[in-house]
Design a binder for these strands. Structure first.
Length: 811
DNA sequence: CAGTGAGCGAGCTTCCGCTTGACTT
């Protein structure tokens, strides 16, 4: 039995530290926080100085009792959780729950997991900083008060099971406001003039230093160019340098993995977790850009060995982000000399990214020479400019180039031919291309994280879960959108003549972007109206200042909470009493055919359009139509609303039954004899498809289905041998069975099939589809249906002490 | 796979930050 018990937060960390400390030390982990306010009630006595009541999570009970036993036997207990607000609180909770004797309890901290850092920490222990703990309690309690007092208002006024919080509500607001900026955006266009010129030593491409707003102006300029002379006026060379970006934090890793590898924020974190557990990278939830000395020297020797001395430059980066607590190092390879690692391809790719970013951060600047050549146009004040870049020294660019969020960056400038001032040029062509201004970009998961970090909202450990929360609540959707077509004018001057042409381009296509839903917009509007200060972008920054003061001991935490709560709670009561239930109803306009009003609002099953007044006021049943994917209550036009009521459309009779066409959950379809036939995207339009086209579609589908059947057995209905996407298989009673290799599916008899079914069932039955990884990812928002409810209340409530029973199906 | 849209009203939903866990066509 060891004399020393060290408690850290993560088991992977415990493992490495144990190696540094030797056999006198037993290192255990607490797996993060060990207790919290219980989930099913407020757990704060607001009238009694906000006295919190904490409970140990059932899942952690066993681990906590084990720690308690070990602590009782140890001579010294070292509380080694992170050096930040949350870490200090974890240490304090441990002290309280494990009932540690202050005389034999020591608090130690380190920012990097190196032998030296840990031994140093052991040499200088301290006591638990109660002010810091109180700052955490204030943070925790404020978040609980906001979340648990505001959410129920939404249940009452908007829809059940919704949620509000200091972080998530502001995250949704960002997306809603961006969408509104996009709605309000009106593109304007101007004409960009480019030319290709010929010099003695080669061609050079140049752009005019002015854009024309009107087509006429552009035309006039190009006509002028027909006879104009072009002369090199100036050649200027300027040295420039580029510096590498700082090593990765959680947020920048998520951004780069999204831009370069196409990972979702959650995917980046699970892959990084794997690398961390394998001991390949340092901790992946960090806001620090700091590298330890061992990492610095490690990087140096790798750079010098691989690229030579002049490529190395020692750099120490400073954290700029708001509210950073820097309990850890930056995310970096544990051993710099591991240029690559074993593992899955995603692990390899993420590691490679981390390695390159870290190494590059310790490399020399790139040196560039930027050349600008100015070309004068006779009898005009405008000039053409050609910009070229020459890389004099690549430096860090040898290893790594940071990605950008800018979707339409100009292609990087190229090499320019040698020219002399006064040289006459001829033009091969000059074009005037109509260019449109760009709407503000929609957020991606990663760019939202970036914005949140800038505002100081959320922490490295919560970025990914927050995105998943706002998606499962149905506030936002991650979607692709097709672009629209638009035409633009292009003028081209070649061989002394100006031609005009009208071309088309696709614009505004979106891939994996965050869109607000109607409910997201509605909730945001409701909350910004009634809880303006909490929804404001600087709310977190402001309360953080107060938490800092609590940590310094200059204000008392319960006082801070009292000030906040008095005004907040009044607002809660006021809103509960006075605010109107919010359905987001909007009058779209009049239906010209019936003269009735058309409304849009949130219905029981989602957004709907309603034709006519409600039954209670008019005595007549109104007509309803669901809004289509991508349509919003806020921006639906009368024209679009009218179109919604054009479906379902009756096409006519076929084989004595009606054919109808409509748009469902999975796109447009034809229905005939209660069978569904999908209309493929660029095949037909549900609004224009004719009965003959529909019949062809039905016939084709039926033939296709026929071909799917290899064998049917009249003796046994429902048992079939079919041709599927993955080859032949047997289907029976909604289950699919694999056919053993080497058997001809056509030759299978009924008995053969039954035997296969029997054998498969004996081996645990056929594998069911719908893997859990889909449920985990941010898919379509899970509606609060009855099925989710039954799984959650599967366990009867036990009376007495264990009130926080969270039914987890874990063994 | 694809719809629906009114209402009895029990009992439930919810926050932010620490951590890891467990499944297959």
């Amino acid at each position: 039995m060891q004399d020393n018990l060290v408690i850290v937060e993560s088991p992977a960390k415990a493992k490495t530290i144990e190696k540094f400390l030797g056999k006198d030390f037993l290192v255990k982990s607490s797996f993060g926080h060990i207790r919290d306010l219980s989930k099913n009630k407020l757990s704060i006595d607001v009238d009694n100085n906000f006295e919190p009541s904490y409970t140990v999570d059932v899942a952690k009970k066993k681990m906590v009792t084990e720690l308690k036993e070990l602590a009782a036997k140890a001579k010294i207990v070292w509380l080694a959780s992170d050096e930040d607000r949350e870490g200090e609180a974890i240490a304090w909770h441990l002290k309280e729950v494990l009932e540690l004797d202050p005389a034999k309890t020591k608090r130690i901290v380190f920012h990097e997991i190196t032998k030296e850092a840990i031994l140093n920490a052991i040499k200088s222990p301290r006591q638990i900083d109660q002010n810091l703990v109180n700052a955490q309690q204030a943070r925790r309690i404020l978040d609980r008060l906001v979340g648990y007092e505001v959410s129920p208002i939404l249940w009452k006024k908007v829809r059940p099971s919704l949620s509000a919080g200091r972080v998530q509500s502001v995250a949704v607001r960002l997306i809603v406001e961006r969408e509104r900026e996009i709605m309000a955006f009106a593109a304007t266009s101007n004409f960009r003039i480019q030319g290709l010129f010929t010099s003695v030593n080669g061609d050079l491409k140049a752009e005019l230093d002015r854009r024309f707003t009107m087509l006429d102006e552009a035309k006039r300029f190009l006509n002028h160019c027909v006879t104009a002379r072009f002369t090199i006026e100036d050649i200027s060379k300027k040295p420039a340098k580029k510096s590498p970006a700082a090593p990765f934090t959680t947020s920048t890793l998520q951004q780069e993995a999204s831009r370069k590898l196409g990972f979702s924020v959650a995917q980046t974190m699970t892959v990084a977790q794997k690398l961390y557990e394998a001991g390949l990278i340092t901790y992946m939830r960090t806001d620090s850009v700091n590298l330890s000395d061992t990492a610095l020297t490690g990087a140096q020797s790798v750079i010098e060995a691989m690229y030579g001395n002049k490529y190395h430059l020692l750099r120490r980066f400073k954290t700029k982000s708001k509210g950073a607590q820097e309990a850890h190092e930056a995310i970096r390879p544990t051993y710099m000399e591991n240029t690559s690692v074993e593992g899955t391809s995603t692990e390899k790719r993420l590691y490679d990214l981390i390695w390159k970013r870290t190494i590059a951060s310790q490399m020399a600047d790139a040196a560039i020479e930027k050349t600008t050549i100015t070309i004068g146009v006779s009898d005009a004040k405008e000039r053409f400019e050609a910009v070229g870049e020459v890389l004099l020294f690549d430096g860090f660019l040898k290893v790594y180039i940071e990605g950008t969020d800018d979707e339409n960056e100009d292609e990087s400038s190229t090499l320019l031919p040698k020219v002399t001032a006064g040289e006459k040029l001829s033009s091969k062509y000059i074009t005037a291309t109509e260019r449109f201004t760009q709407k503000p970009p929609r957020y991606t998961e990663a760019s939202l994280v970036k914005k949140m970090e800038e505002l100081g909202i959320g922490r490295p450990s919560t970025y990914a879960p927050t995105i998943s929360t706002i998606a499962t609540r149905g506030y936002v959707l991650k979607e692709d959108r097709d672009g629209l077509e638009r035409s633009f004018t292009i003028l081209k001057l070649t061989n002394g003549k100006v031609h005009q042409e009208l071309k088309t381009e696709i614009f505004g296509a979106e891939k994996s972007k965050l869109f607000p839903s109607d409910i997201g917009i509605l909730v945001t509007d409701f909350l910004t109206e009634h809880f303006t200060s909490i929804l404001s972008y600087d709310f977190t920054a402001n309360v953080e200042k107060e938490f800092d003061e609590i940590a310094l001991g200059t204000i008392e935490w319960t006082k801070m909470l009292r000030t906040f709560y008095t005004t907040f709670h009044t607002k809660v009561e006021e809103t509960t009493l006075n605010s109107q239930p919010s359905k987001g109803e909007r009058l779209v306009g009049l239906d010209p055919r019936t003269g009735k009003q058309i409304y849009v609002r949130i219905g029981r099953f989602g957004p709907i359009a309603q034709l006519g007044e409600s039954e209670t006021t008019s005595g007549e049943k109104p007509q309803y139509a669901s809004l289509q994917k991508g349509q919003l209550i806020e921006s639906l036009t009368l024209e679009e609303a009218l179109k919604l009521f054009d479906l379902p459309r009756k096409l006519g009779q076929y084989e004595e039954e009606e054919i109808t066409v409509a748009i469902g959950k999975f796109g447009p379809y034809i229905k005939h004899k209660s069978k569904f036939f999908s209309i493929k995207k660029d095949q037909h339009d549900p609004y224009t498809i004719t009965i003959d086209e529909a019949i062809t579609l039905i016939k084709e589908k039926l033939i296709e289905d026929k071909n799917k059947i290899i064998t049917e057995f009249s003796e046994k209905a429902g048992l079939k041998v079919l041709n599927g996407r993955f080859g032949p298989y047997i289907t029976f009673e909604k289950n699919n069975y694999k056919i053993p290799k080497g058997t001809d599916p056509a030759s299978l008899s009924l008995d053969d099939c039954l035997k296969i079914i029997e054998e498969t069932d004996a081996n645990g039955g056929p594998k069911k589809g719908k893997a859990s990884r889909f449920a985990k990812s941010t898919k379509v928002a899970a509606k609060p249906t009855k099925t989710t409810k039954t799984t959650k209340t599967s366990k009867p409530k036990s009376a007495g002490a264990a009130k926080t029973t969270k039914p987890k199906t874990k063994k």
